[in-house]
């Protein structure tokens, strides 16, 4: 039996009918048309690759194993919610500059985990960054450039706006 749910998606309220067995990932991609959140090798069974990571109420979670039914009334941010009309998010810019992207499939998940981290801890140590990325796999870059990118973004985001 489908249920009408309503939640905040990237700052705007959306209302959508979902079936109890539909994952949030399916609803975001198929019903709401946002294709930035990825389904990877887990085929929806969660091998812990992290490509489907979204942020719900400030915390990074896997959208592939979360029934959409459960996000009624909550605040969801996907990769599409990162950039603003003015331009890319500092994390996105840093990923591009540091070369933290190769095939790009893990990138949206990496960025969401990184955003959840920086929102809570604006100046993380290397170990804290590694811990925050423990649920995301990248098969190309070897992680070093991803960690560098997050450090770069952290540094820029902590600088007061308009300052040198």
């Amino acid at each position: 039996m489908s249920t009408r749910i309503s939640f905040i998606l990237n700052g705007s309220r959306v209302t959508v009918d979902v079936e109890p067995w539909e994952s949030l990932l399916d609803v975001i991609r198929k019903k709401l048309g946002l294709k930035g959140t990825k389904l990877a090798f887990c085929r929806g069974a969660c091998g812990g690759c992290g490509a489907c990571t979204v942020i719900i109420d400030g915390r990074a979670v896997y959208s592939s194993i979360l029934p959409a039914y459960k996000v009624d009334g909550r605040n969801v941010i996907t990769i599409e919610g990162l950039a603003s009309p003015e331009g890319l998010h500092p994390l996105q810019e840093a990923f591009v500059e540091a070369g933290a992207i190769q095939c790009g499939f893990c990138t949206s998940g990496m960025l969401m985990s990184a955003k959840a981290l920086l929102d809570e801890n604006p100046d993380p140590s290397d170990d804290e960054i590694k811990d925050a990325l423990r649920g995301n796999l990248c098969r190309c870059t070897g992680y070093v450039k991803i960690i560098e990118a997050i450090k770069l973004a952290s540094k820029r985001m902590r600088r007061p706006a308009g300052g040198g």
Binding site: G48, G50, R59, A60, V61, Y62, L66, S113, R134, G135
Partner: peptide, 9 residues
């Protein structure tokens, strides 16, 4: 347990 995303759920 598992990963940060799993522990968050």
């Amino acid at each position: 347990v598992a990963s940060p995303q799993i522990r968050n759920m």
